[in-house]
Nucleic acid binder design. Structure first.
Lengths: 157, 157
DNA sequence: TATTGTTATACTCTATAACTATA
DNA sequence: TATAGTTATAGAGTATAACAATA
């Protein structure tokens, strides 16, 4: 077993009093670990993971992203985008299209099959959010979303 | 270069309109990427990373944690804790002590040198938080902290 | 000369199972 | 029989450099 299953988690509560438990970066990291574990579990039946789902979701959106934009937005290296797009393209979920206005750049577009799978993946991702944020009500989730959006895309350094 | 340096990030703003940009799990993941990059940069002069800092910080706290508790609290596998404690112990920053009440269990305690380094690391971690959360004011950070604490330690699944 | 995508490589992180010693 | 720690190994994720095509 990796990490701790929920049935075994009952002994470390006394560490909640530690300084680290109030460290924002630590809290974000812990929530991400739990959240991505939940999301990967929900996406597994669709043969997707959080990273491939992110690429698929953006590719199926309205302004079709270039690989360069995907790398910037997902905070990944361009070379990692290549591998992710390769995987999705091999399954017929997205396709590359050279940008007519800049032949260096390749746009990534969702296929019909990709959009269909993406719709199902969104449902799975939403269920995973419920799994990992059970402690928060709808209003609190909205407040958290607004704060995170500003923090995640705001000026860094 | 890995990922994107801040000077080059200006082209993917149009993807902010995507569905994914409102996905809570995605926002948490992106903020964590940025936050841990900032924290690792600040901790590098002390030869620490976010994970080793987390262990050191807990070991230097008041209720000395067992390795089992560290694994549960940090959401890591027990086998990963072994490697992290090995590294810190080899540098004389923490030491293992068999729990008298259960000789299977080993408590991890910070040494004098470890506590001194930990104090400096806390300053670095705080500076990293400023780096990555520049977009939020003090009140917003407090609100975010409270929401994250409940979400990160609340019931999961 | 700079940028987009690509390939290749190495390194870190994470997952999993088996083993030991204690309980 | 169960639990805490350890070891070993494999796979996923990440970092870095070099190259071709295009600007």
């Amino acid at each position: 077993m990796a990490r701790n299953d929920s049935t075994a988690a009952q002994g470390a509560d006394r560490l909640l009093a530690s300084d680290l438990a109030q460290d924002l970066s630590f809290l974000v990291a812990r929530l991400r670990s739990r959240g991505s574990a939940a999301a990967n579990a929900r996406l597994a039946p669709l043969d997707l993971k959080v990273r491939s789902y992110s690429v698929l979701s953006l590719a199926c959106g309205d302004p079709s992203p270039s690989q360069r934009e995907l790398a910037e937005f997902l905070w990944l290296d361009p070379s990692q985008i290549v591998a992710l797009v390769d995987g999705l393209e091999g399954r017929g979920l997205v396709r590359r299209e050279t940008d007519p206005s800049d032949r260096r750049s390749k746009l990534v577009l969702g296929t019909a099959r990709g959009r269909e799978l993406c719709a199902r993946a969104r449902v799975a991702a939403s269920a995973a959010e419920d799994d990992s944020l059970r402690a928060l009500g709808a209003g609190e989730r909205a407040a958290l979303r607004a704060l995170l959006a500003r923090a995640a895309f705001g000026p860094a350094d």
